[in-house]
Amino acid sequence: MPDVETSTPVQSTQRVMICPHCECPAIQEVKGVVVVPKDDPEDHDSPDFEYTLLRCTDCREASLQVRELWFFASLNEVTKFAYPAQRQLSLDVPTELRREFEEARTCFEAKAYTAAVVMVRRTLEGIGVDNEITERPLARQIERMKSEGLIDQSIAEWADSLRVLGNQGAHYTGRQVSREDANDAIDFAEALLDHIYVYKKRFEEFKKRNVAKSTPPITT
């Protein structure tokens, strides 16, 4: 069990952000901070976690914010709400992609729906780059991901729909991106990240375990 470092903030400490309860820009009073270190202090590939208890000065609801603290200062820290409950991306998803996705979600929470779908499109591009698929335009990148078995036909259709929506956000068309479309884009992007970095990996591990179980022991 790792040690837990705690600190009591000054009573007047405040943060300004979109409240996850009333969804309005508001001052959040900091009521307490706890830092939970990783199990191995020498493991620089994993973050510590800082939990901050906040209370909105408008709706008076409490929330819990969590921030990743990385050893290397050059890494941007991912900040999100642990309460009210919001499904979090697995740490199996590369940090850079989680950062892009969290920025999309931050834009959505700020009601910047066009910016949200643009960040989703950047996340799609990042998935290709992370898997050494760098063709341009993005449509060819998605087709290559499908041909190499990274995604199947139905998920390729999701990805292409996100690409089209991202193009609508990135280029002036005179049309606004709706809240519903932005929300769907974020949900589909989350499912895509889970499919590639979480479920495929777990399935491969599952198959390896079953092969090992079915292999008869070597006797001498």
Rank of each mutant, 00 (worst) to 15 (best):
D39A: 14
N167I: 05
I127E: 01
V16W: 07
V129K: 13
N131S: 05
S12E: 12
P217S: 14
F203Y: 15
W158V: 11
V211H: 11
R136F: 04
T6Y: 10
E100M: 13
L53I: 11
P41N: 12
G32T: 01
A82C: 06
H21P: 07
E204Y: 12
K208W: 00
E103H: 04
V211K: 15
V66K: 05
A62F: 15
D152F: 12
A191M: 15
Q141N: 03
L91G: 09
G174E: 01
R144Q: 15
V118L: 05
E148V: 14
T220Y: 14
L124M: 04
T114N: 02
A85I: 09
V211Y: 12
K207I: 14
G128I: 08
V198R: 07
V211T: 14
V78S: 06
D92M: 13
A112H: 10
Q65Y: 08
A116P: 06
R67V: 12
F49K: 13
A104D: 07
S90K: 12
A116N: 04
R179L: 09
D40P: 04
V35G: 00
T173S: 15
A110W: 01
V211G: 05
F108N: 03
A139N: 09
S214Q: 09
L69W: 10
A115F: 09
A189F: 02
T134Q: 06
P94F: 14
N131H: 13
R99E: 09
R105E: 10
R15S: 03
Y199C: 03
S214I: 01
F71L: 06
R136W: 05
R163P: 01
D184H: 11
S147E: 15
A104N: 11
I133W: 10
I196G: 02
I127F: 04
P37E: 10
R99Q: 12
M1P: 10
E157N: 13
Y197C: 03
S46P: 01
C19T: 00
Y113R: 04
E205W: 07
L54W: 02
I27S: 03
A115V: 04
P94M: 12
R140V: 08
I218E: 13
Q11P: 02
R98T: 06
E68W: 09
D3Y: 08
R99G: 08
L53P: 00
K201Y: 11
K31M: 14
K80H: 08
W70N: 01
C24F: 04
A112I: 09
D152L: 13
I142N: 00
A110I: 03
A116G: 08
M119N: 01
E205F: 07
E204K: 15
T57P: 00
A85N: 07
E50A: 11
L162M: 10
R144E: 15
A85E: 09
V36Q: 06
K207S: 08
D48N: 15
P25R: 10
T215S: 11
F101S: 06
I151R: 01
A82G: 03
E42Y: 13
N210Q: 08
E42W: 09
G128Q: 09
E190R: 14
E100V: 07
G169Y: 01
F203K: 10
R163Y: 02
L150Y: 12
D181K: 12
A170W: 05
